[in-house]
């Protein structure tokens, strides 16, 4: 039920933000209400209203993680931009297996998406607690390179119960 209310709140906020119509004229407001209720009912019917589908309880932690991730993304971008512009091609691609300590599906999704979002590394496949990562530079994906991201995504989505 909490997930349902969270989804409804987010949908209302999204509708108000996009339409920017607070006058609540009957026609427009009823169209908005119908679309919000329809989306919520469809989400319930699709059975995606669980911890992954609406992780609003950990929104603040996830936002903090996101701010850290944006800085990392810009640092990693610089490397890839230099690789694109160098007059002679000089790259060292590698496939590595990264072991993750994330246990819940949400934490694993956040971790794998962060790896993909950082330019220079792409998560190719997830098997159990190992993630196959393709990296543009082998040095950037060496042992321990993802430890901090792993720890932070685990703390952001699961809390600090286990260190």
């Amino acid at each position: 039920m909490g997930y349902f209310l969270g989804l409804i709140t987010v949908l209302i906020a999204l509708w108000l933000g996009l339409s920017w119509d607070y006058s609540l004229k009957p026609v427009i407001a009823s169209l908005g209400a119908v679309s919000i209720v329809l989306s919520a009912v469809l989400a319930y019917r699709f059975d995606i209203l669980d911890r992954e589908g609406s992780p609003y309880g950990r929104l603040i932690q996830l936002m903090g993680y996101w701010l850290w991730l944006i800085v990392e993304i810009f640092k990693a971008n610089w490397v890839v931009i230099k690789a694109c512009l160098r007059s002679t091609l000089d790259i060292n691609p590698a496939l590595v297996k990264v072991k993750t300590g994330c246990e819940s599906d949400l934490a694993r999704t956040v971790f794998a998406n962060s790896i993909t979002l950082t330019p220079g590394t792409v998560s190719v496949e997830i098997e159990g607690d190992k993630i196959l990562v393709h990296a543009l530079y082998e040095e950037a994906a060496g042992p321990g390179a993802f430890d901090e991201m792993d720890r932070r995504s685990r703390e952001a989505s699961d809390g600090r119960r286990k260190s």
Partner: peptide, 11 residues
Amino acid sequence: RLHAASVTDTA
């Protein structure tokens, strides 16, 4: 090429 394309997607 996937890495190069992700520069566009992010930065």
